[in-house]
């Protein structure tokens, strides 16, 4: 049983209010789209949900099988893909994933890593340095990074940015699989991305509670 709850989340930078009173509760198989114009705080909200940033007010709670997960351990249960995520340019795609797996303490085989790279269509370029990757290829590698530990919660910020038609199709497939296996939260303004989610929050409306579409 998986429950992910945001309770009256608010964020201010200095004295500027970004958003306030954001609340929702998601369970397994739920999906949520976070929408809003540029600067409305979509990425900030995702960072707060991932425990990368602290909210000014409110609390995030993650429960797995009835047990509350400490915020410092959120990273073990969620994956994040976002434009501000930086992978190591000095390493190859394979080395990046290998290092992240070792830091996370995952004992996955080379075959598992290979399958993941094939899934995001980077197998042929796995031994090339990330600095030689295009922006679309870096985006694909971020998906491999986010999925490496099979997280029950997947957070996607602008999920289809920089991707070609094939990449977008792969992302939609990943989103569909995530909806079956866990929770999917997407920050986007793309109408196609929004259609993939059952619930939506519009930050411009400062809505309270995930409104069912």
């Amino acid at each position: 049983m998986l429950v992910f709850t945001a309770d009256h989340i608010a964020k201010t930078f200095n004295r500027r209010k970004i958003f306030a009173e954001i609340s929702f509760s998601l369970e397994k198989s739920d999906s949520l789209a976070i929408t809003g114009r540029n600067g409305s705080g979509k990425s900030t909200l995702l960072k707060i949900l991932a425990n990368v940033l602290s909210p000014t007010k409110g609390e995030i709670e993650m429960k797995i099988d009835g047990k509350i997960v400490k915020p410092v351990d959120f990273f073990t249960h969620l994956g994040l893909v976002s434009p501000y995520l930086q992978l190591y340019d000095e390493f190859t795609g394979w080395e990046n994933l290998d290092i992240f797996m070792k830091v996370r303490g995952i004992n996955a085989s080379d075959e598992c890593l290979g399958e993941l790279l094939k899934r995001v269509n980077l197998w042929e370029r796995k031994n090339d340095y990330v600095r030689t990757y295009s922006s679309g290829m870096k985006q694909r590698l971020k998906y491999a990074f986010a999925l490496i530990h099979k997280p029950p919660i997947l957070l996607l910020d602008e999920p289809t940015s920089n991707l070609d038609a094939e990449g977008i199709s792969t992302v939609y497939q990943i989103m569909e699989e995530q909806k079956k296996a866990g929770i999917l939260i997407v920050a986007t303004n793309d109408s196609e991305d929004i259609k993939k989610c059952e619930q939506a929050i519009d930050l411009n409306l400062q809505s309270n509670g995930g409104s069912k579409k």
Partner: peptide
């Protein structure tokens, strides 16, 4: 940012 997502702060 990436390190936030793979390990505890300490």
């Amino acid at each position: 940012m990436t390190l936030h997502l793979i390990a505890r702060p300490l």
